[in-house]
Design a protein around this nucleic acid. Structure first.
Lengths: 335, 335
DNA sequence: CTGAAAGCGCTAACAC
DNA sequence: GTGTTAGCGCTTTCAG
């Protein structure tokens, strides 16, 4: 592989001239410029980004901290990933996926290795040690999600408070009085995952406001778990006429549990999800949802980070308001 | 951030000694070694991986070429991604996701920038220009999927021929005589995506063997498209009693089309998928499937690549035989 | 406008 | 065992 020195020799100019015709950081005469470009073309020269990164202390790689997927399936993180990789690629950045071995020091070590220009964090906890650390290090990062204290950090998140209120308002409007909310796993509760806790609280608050009976159930992310939780819920409160879930992988289980109880959707039980259309339409009947703006969140998160890296001064804290999409799984309460 | 020079000074030794106590590539006396380690601990020194990479011409980052996701949703590539990132992280490699802007030169340019030690390709075409190029460059890579000509390349793939025969054998055994296979989009056909074409051919072959009427339909990856294709299929051949699909995102559409025709699953129509359990269990009734070994393929693909990078001489061409998982969507033909 | 040379932080000969 | 030094391929001062 040819290096800059090869080009310089070939074009009969100094190394620095090659560098500058490439970067445009200082004027180069048209004639010399052409000679250099010709040499580059002839030798099929390709700048070595790694060497450049060492010299400039800047890379064009951002990293997404990818949560460890344990036994359960991951939430539709892939919807974030697709949009982030799209934005990154379009701006000529690479996206590095990385799972820190242990949450604390590993992140720090990673960013000190010089490969990564900035981070996108997801699965953010209300009090997130990673965020604390990154702030202290003054390292560029953005959050998909947000903490309890967000002073001075850029984030984009869905407004879960709004979303859950919207769900409950809608169901209350249909006359439902007993609704169950199937939330994420208790492991995520324990971790203090922001969206899980905010959803929980918002749901309880909304239920109270409407003066209806609301019960929350944590649930692992697999169909079997969903099945069992719904059976339990229908047993605990047989008056239940509506179920909300924010957990994409359990829909099948929920549906089957309802059917196995001899109930119909939406005649006997209304079902709502907080998830993406693609998932909502995989189930039959298609799920009425709060449309989780995965794509947009990923896009904005990556975009904010890259802008920040390019020197733009930004201070963005965005809480997206999702919209309600009524499909076939919800209807008026009969009781 | 402290550098090696700082450590050397602090410990009162030469730079190279620090380097060597870190790498173990030459003996260091216990006493000196300890001084160095102390200095490292005190200054919280972290080796700069980028600089090391420049010096050694080796990195610990592998890249997954991420197909451009256009309008349709991506196939469950995320299942590959999770397992690849898992393997990579566990072996201390980073995984870079990257979407080449244009299929040919971009890949070459990328790998010449020095950041990437090797590539995992997916969405492999029967005659894949990327593969040709990488072979010519003698660049380390592995395939998830495989080409027509695979001499000298490492790959892991599912045995689609086996899978489709398994499907058809099973359905034929249940007495089905008219089966439709809903394959991926015609765009993927045109691209020459290996799995799409191999599935098609295997299905036709199996149908012929069993002397049953088999029709293949290409289909975009969204529920609406699935819905329409199934309506069309049931119109074209009302005798159809079984439908196979390898397309994860259209299940909902398929099911609803069947119901809208007043048919029942599995009483009137048997449904089978070639997909992962998580997806199979999202639909109701849960889908009988050929269990697509995403995880295993991702794991093996990444593992092969990393071994190769670490100097192991490997020559692996693996065609995984999936297994049949009978759930609730299939049953004997009534006609 | 252009060239020479000093780094970026590390590895790996090459000396002693 | 340890120290010295020449790179890796590029950017960026500093001279001219």
């Amino acid at each position: 592989m040819p290096t800059m020195a090869d080009i310089a020799k070939r074009a009969g100019v100094a190394l620095s001239t090659v560098s500058h015709t490439l970067s445009g950081k200082r004027p180069v005469s048209a004639e010399v410029r052409q000679r250099v470009l010709d040499a580059i073309a002839e030798l099929e020269y390709q700048p070595h980004a790694l060497a450049r990164a060492l010299a400039t202390k800047r890379t064009r790689t951002i990293a997404l901290l990818y949560p460890k997927v344990s036994t359960s399936l991951p939430e539709p993180h892939f919807e974030f990933i697709s949009s982030i990789v799209e934005v990154a690629s379009s701006k000529n950045y690479g996206l590095l996926l990385w799972t820190p071995s242990d949450d604390d020091g590993a992140v720090l070590r990673m960013i000190q290795q010089g490969f990564i220009a900035g981070l996108v964090l997801m699965e953010v906890r209300l009090d997130d040690p990673r965020v604390e650390m990154l702030k202290k290090q003054n390292y560029p990062f953005t959050l998909i999600g947000h903490c309890r204290d967000n002073t001075g950090i850029n984030f984009v998140d869905m407004d879960f408070d709004y979303a859950l209120h919207m769900c409950v308002d809608y169901l209350a409007g249909l006359g439902h009085k007993h609704v169950a909310f199937i939330n994420h796993s208790s492991k995520l509760y324990e971790m203090g995952a922001g969206y899980v806790i905010r959803s929980h609280e918002a749901f309880m608050h909304a239920a109270e406001q409407h003066n209806l009976c609301g019960i929350v159930y944590p649930c692992e992310s697999n169909a079997q778990a969903g099945y069992e939780v719904v059976l339990a819920a229908l047993t605990e409160n047989p008056a239940t006429t509506a179920i909300i879930t924010s957990n994409a992988w359990i829909n099948g289980g929920i549906t089957r549990a309802i059917y196995d109880r001899g109930l119909k959707i939406p005649e006997d039980i209304s079902l709502m999800g907080i998830l993406s259309p693609s998932v909502a339409e995989m189930t039959t009947p298609a799920l009425t949802t709060i449309d989780f703006p995965y794509k947009e969140m990923g896009r904005i998160g990556a975009d904010m980070l890259i802008r920040q890296l390019e020197g733009e001064q930004i201070a963005t804290q965005l809480l997206l308001k999702p919209s309600l999409i009524i499909r076939q799984s919800s209807g008026p309460s009969k009781r």
